[in-house]
Every structure is written in structure tokens, then in C-alpha cells.
Design a protein around this nucleic acid. Structure first.
Lengths: 348, 348
DNA sequence: CTGAAAGCGCTTACAG
DNA sequence: CTGAAAGCGCTTACAG
């Protein structure tokens, strides 16, 4: 290694001024309040150049209490191989807006716990503290950690709602509204027996969809047969279940996520039924570039990119002093596909 | 806000010890060298819990000179919409290995310059200094900045080679070797007139491919007709150029990148020629999930994920004291597709 | 208009 | 086995 990196004092000595002046010049804090002679400024600048001075960012952070870094925290890997297309648009939005707001992005990759899951608090210590504030997202953000963060006053924004009553800032997609829109669409086509195929895991975003499903029935004055609401994993989804739903009067089926929809479509085809002639199908939210099976499925588009952008925007405002919590819900675009038609045997 | 976060002194006072003890307990530096009574340790731990003490990471970084953060620098956005699939596997590899080595990842998103390009040195200041070391990648890493980083002794690893003689650590793909393999494959099929379609921009990775192309000819004792080596953008690639190549004796064409290959295939088809019956085609390296047009193209697979992993591994070693520069070249897997066959009119 | 000093919150030799 | 002190490299009131 060459000799030690020059510090501020070295520059000050070289320029014949005090370290304070160097700091002021460095930070461009030379206005009507603090006036330093142009010659001095130039001399300091020259010394900085000559010595190749670079301020130590850690020292600056310690002194100022901030470092223009936004954290990105997810409980699972940020770059998941499977969910790739799901997280990716978030990140594109986050990066774009971080760049616009002049923040670097810190990905908390180390905060592992036993089960391979990450954790905000490791040994009771908030791992996000290195960043001025953070964006949280992932398939299940832990309510207890969000509550604690809020309590501590750490600035953060969650992408997606969390299961807590504590006030915190989030950006969410309007799953309920989008689901209502899908059900309305089915009702407009004459469906009255609409089955709901949900995940056993009742994450907030799933519950929101289900809520929208029920609201739409209510608004349409349609009685909902509870036997049409079933929860299942794609792997355990059985033809028998499908048969039961159809026998119970379902002419349309909505699925909470794409894997369920894919499994369902396979079962439907196995039975020699045609979509949408014999049965209509809709997917409640498209994350992925749709697979072949779902390419033209009726669904809605979750505004992932915009959610990323908004989260960073809100966080940025918070870091600039906005103390209020912001709860934003973005609309989803309805996507009319080719999997919905009039029911084969209208029951109207 | 509630009252100020407790600091180390507060814990020390509460536990009735000196700050140094708190620091030692915090960092688990209690071994045979430094022995502190178990009661004291427990008292300190209790005080930390009671006060909700969390060490200030900035202060720790300043004191220790490191912060277990690896930087990720690219000249373009890290999350590009277009090149999506190109960078993504790098990032997956980087994240996996960073997690394994217990580092967080800092994405330098702010270092913008005028033209929208990022820059390592902003106003002469190394923007990477916030991280203990960094991984650099992107479509054109600037040689001058790499040289300066190397000169300064900043720890970094480049994914991909850079156009400089300065010694620095990199992880690259063996484009030359992989291209030789492709040419050999063509030669084995009886081709002697192999055209090379390159990008006008002669980035290092492209030059490597071209070098491999020439080496393979030499090794096969095949004279290379220089008229068969052309450079063009996909947009300006003309049917006339293709006609000329074919007239000059080309029975096979290799393309430096997928957009060129896609354009070429379109032109070939427009002429009513069949692949591989009338002309064989190979792509020199697959980044993307192949588009339909290229789905079964003969090519080679760039080990993007492994390159990301290796870069972080090498950087990690450097940060742990390994002062040597490492230059790693990873092999690419040959992918035999369906776009190569014997030439229609063998000239052997 | 500029300098001396305290402070940001830690860690780490160095004494005892 | 533990404490007092210096140091990491900045920024920012506070004096003059």
C-alpha cells in the first residue's frame, strides 16, 4: 500500500487553513451566512486535488447522522430465482426513484436467522440502522417487527400491507377493488355461481382479494354459496374438488394466484372441458410474465413498478422531515382475457 | 420522538462499568486474553436489554474502518428493464455468496453524471468508499476508473475484463475458448466458409470472441477470407450484406450477440433460405432466456451466476487480507442446437 | 471572515 | 480483571 489516505487536517495544513474551512468548502456551505474569500476556497480546492483528498464517508455519517442510503429489506432473498419476475419490477421502480432522489441502496443480505429466514432484529439489534431509512417487502413481512420499527421511530415504508394495527407507511395494491372488478366482469357475463379458489395461507393480500370477492357479491345482490369458497395448494388440488364445485353450481372460477390457476386449468382440461365454453376462469392478479397456460387469462395487473417508485418517494419525504405516515393503495388494471364467456347453462 | 437512543456510555453507567467493557461484551471479545467475570457480562447484557441499546453502526465503522458492506457498481442501472435477464443471474450469484460470507450489498445508484451515466469518481471522490470493497460490472466498465481504483488500492473485483494493462482482479467468461468450440463444431460439420458477424462496438468481450474465431481457423488450418468478417448493428444489417457473404462462400454464420442473430435469421428467412439446410447459424453466447427465434440456436452458455458468486468470493478473500489479484476465466457450456448442419454445397 | 473546540459513538491499545 | 484515554475523521455551533 502507498501511504495513508490524506485526511481533512492534511488538506487544512497544506492549504494553511483550519479543518473547518476544508469541511465548509467540501460541502459547498459557502453562502451569505458564511463567507470565505474566493482565493481561500480556490487554495483549499487545489490542496484537495493535489493531495487526492477524499472524505471518509463513515466519518461524515457519524457526524451528520445520515448517509443518503436507503435500505431494502426482504425476508427472502432479494433476487429469488423462482419469484424472479415478481420482485424484479419492484426493484426497477425502487432503483429509478432512488436514483432520482439521490440515494444509494443497501440490500440487507446478511441478516440471516436459523431457519434461513432473515430478520430485522438480530440479537435485539435493528439491522437496518446502517441506512437512513428502509423499504420492506416480501411475501410475509413480520407484523411484530414492523410494530417495533414503528415504535422506535425508524423511517420505513412497506410495500404491501402488514397484519398490524400499528400506524406505519405502506404502498399497497388495491386487491379488493381489482377483485371486485373481476367478479363484476363475470356477473356481467351472466355468471351467478362463481367459485373462489384461495391459498390456505391467508396472507393480507389474499384476505383482501377474498374481501373484494364478497363485497362484489353483496353489491350485485348475489347470494354467495359458501361451499364455493375453497382453499387449497396447487399440489393438493384435486379433480374431486373441481367436480364438487361444478356440481354445486359453479360456472366460473377465480384463483388467488397463478400456480393455483395453472393447476386448475390442467384439471379442467383433463376433464375434457373447454375454457371458456364450459367454464370461465379468472386469475386474481398477474405477477409474472404469464406462462403459456395463462397467456390470455382474464386477470388484473399489479402495479409493481409504481409501488416501488412510490415506496421510495414516501420514504424520501419521510427522510426529509415528513413525519406523517402515508398509506397508499394503487389501483390495478383490469385485463380482459379470453377465459371468460357466458356460462354454458345460464342459471339466470 | 421518544428520548434519544441510549448510547454505550448509558449502558456502561447503568451497569456500573466502563464503556470499554460494554464494547467488549458487545463484540464477544471475551476470551483467555480478556477475562471479565460472568456476573459482569450478565449485568452488561441485562442493561443493554433493559435500555434497548443498539450500537450505532456508523460509529463502529469509523472506529474499525470496515462495515461488512460490499458495493455493487454498474455504469448503467443495476435493474435494467431491457437487459433484465442479462444482469439478473449475476445478482443472484452475488447475493447468494454475499449472504454466505455475511456481507450486506450496497448498490450505488446515485453516482450519476451528466449523461445519465454513473461514475465511480464524482468530483474526484471515490463513491465506492462507503463499502469495504466492490464488485463492478456492466456493459462498459471504464478502464481509466479501474486503473485509478487499482492504483488507490481500493478492493474490487470486476465481472468481465476491462481494457487495461493495470493489474486488477476479474472474473470473466472464456469467450475465446467458447467461440473456438463453436467454430470447431462448424468445421466438423464440413463448413469452411464461416462468416463472422460482429458488433461495431469492439468491447473486450467481443474482441475475445473474434480472437477465438481466428484462433480456431488457424488451429484447423483454415484460411480466413477477411471479407467474411463484418461488423454491423442489427438495425442496419442489410439483406445485401447477407447476399454478399453468401456469394463470397459463407455456408455458416456466427453472430456476436442475440440481437444480431435475430436480425440475421429474419433476413435469411426473407430470402426463402432454410436453417440449417441452406445455411448454418450459431450465436456466440446466450444471455437471455432465448427468444422464440433463437430457442434452439447453437450457441454457448455464459456462466453468469457462477461469475457473480466467484466475484464475491474473490472480493471476500481480498477483504480478509488476500493481497494478490485474481484473474479467473470460467468456461462456457457449448449448446448444440438445431441450426447447424452440413453445408448444402460442400466446398471441401 | 476564520480558528479552536467539542461532539458524533464507537474500539483499542495502554495502564494499573 | 477493569478503567481512563486516545483515536477513528468528520461537522457544527461558538468565539473572536
Amino acid at each position: 500500500m502507498s501511504k495513508r489516505r490524506p485526511r481533512q487536517v492534511d488538506v487544512a495544513r497544506h492549504a494553511g487553513v483550519s479543518p473547518a474551512i476544508v469541511s465548509l468548502v467540501l460541502n459547498g456551505k459557502i453562502d451569505e451566512k458564511i463567507r470565505i474569500s474566493p482565493q481561500t476556497v480556490e487554495r483549499v480546492r487545489a490542496s484537495m486535488r493535489e493531495l487526492g483528498y477524499m472524505p471518509n464517508p463513515m466519518a461524515r455519517s457519524l457526524a451528520t447522522g445520515q448517509n443518503r442510503i436507503m435500505g431494502v429489506f426482504t425476508y427472502e432473498p432479494v433476487f429469488p430465482l423462482q419469484t424472479e419476475s415478481f420482485y424484479f419490477p419492484f426493484l426497477v421502480g425502487i432503483e429509478d426513484e432512488a436514483e432520482a432522489k439521490d440515494y444509494d441502496l443497501l440490500l440487507f443480505t446478511r441478516s440471516r436467522r436459523h431457519a434461513g429466514r432473515r430478520t430485522v432484529y438480530r440479537d435485539g439489534v435493528n439491522q437496518l440502522l446502517m441506512a437512513d431509512g428502509s423499504v420492506l417487502f416480501g411475501r410475509d413481512v413480520e407484523a411484530s417487527e414492523v410494530e417495533r420499527l414503528a415504535l422506535e421511530g425508524y423511517p420505513f415504508v412497506s410495500i404491501g400491507r402488514v397484519d398490524t394495527d400499528a400506524p406505519y407507511s405502506y404502498v399497497a395494491a388495491d386487491y379488493a377493488g381489482a377483485t371486485r372488478r373481476v367478479v363484476d366482469h363475470l356477473v356481467e357475463h351472466g355468471h351467478t355461481g362463481i367459485a373462489y379458489l384461495g391459498a390456505p395461507d391467508r396472507a393480507v393480500s389474499y384476505r383482501e382479494r377474498e374481501r373484494g370477492f364478497r363485497q362484489a357479491h353483496e353489491a350485485a345482490g348475489l347470494a354467495l354459496d359458501e361451499r364455493l369458497v375453497v382453499f387449497s395448494d396447487p399440489e393438493t388440488l384435486l379433480g374431486r374438488q373441481l367436480d364438487t364445485l361444478l356440481a354445486t353450481g359453479a360456472t366460473a372460477l377465480v384463483c388467488e394466484h397463478h400456480r393455483l390457476a395453472t393447476a386448475l386449468i390442467r384439471l379442467v382440461r383433463e376433464r375434457g372441458l373447454a375454457i371458456p365454453r364450459d367454464v370461465s376462469i379468472a386469475l386474481l392478479g398477474e405477477h409474472h410474465r404469464p406462462s403459456d397456460a395463462l397467456a390470455s387469462c382474464t386477470t388484473f395487473r399489479i402495479p409493481l413498478y409504481a409501488m416501488g417508485v412510490d415506496a421510495v418517494r414516501i420514504l424520501g419525504n419521510a427522510l426529509e422531515g415528513d413525519a406523517t405516515t402515508h398509506q397508499t393503495t394503487l389501483p390495478c388494471d383490469f385485463v380482459a382475457g379470453h377465459t371468460v364467456a357466458e356460462p354454458a347453462t345460464p342459471r339466470a
